[in-house]
């Protein structure tokens, strides 16, 4: 029996397609960033399917956010590690940045 709803992968591609005009108007460099965002959401298609949300795009947005936050967390610990190595403290650095 054929399923009636499109699979989560088809749904994802349709949602991505729905932003084709938005993407077209972006600068080339921003287009690539947008592609990256969508690509990152793909790692969570299984979870999105399991969620069975009536508006799957909301789940995809959350998946992008999740990947973004993972990256932020990774970069933060990397920065902290580097700061520790160079003997500086985070607070001092932030004020330095603010000064520049």
């Amino acid at each position: 029996m054929g399923r009636t709803l499109p699979s989560i992968t088809q749904t994802f591609m349709q949602e991505e397609q729905a932003f084709a005009r938005f993407r077209r108007a972006l600068r080339r460099s921003d287009q690539l960033v947008l592609d990256d965002l969508f690509a990152s959401a793909r790692s969570h298609l299984a979870a999105a399917a399991y969620a069975a949300h009536a508006l799957p795009m909301e789940t995809f947005l959350l998946a992008m956010l999740l990947e973004e936050h993972k990256e932020v967390t990774r970069l933060r610990s990397l920065v902290e590690e580097l700061l520790e190595k160079t003997g500086k403290t985070g607070e001092a650095d932030e004020s330095d940045d603010a000064g520049e």
Partner: peptide, 14 residues
């Protein structure tokens, strides 16, 4: 009554 496997609920929800 969906007699042709057509009822895609996602566009309906949107």
């Amino acid at each position: 009554v969906d007699a042709g496997n057509q009822f895609n609920a996602y566009p309906v929800a949107r």
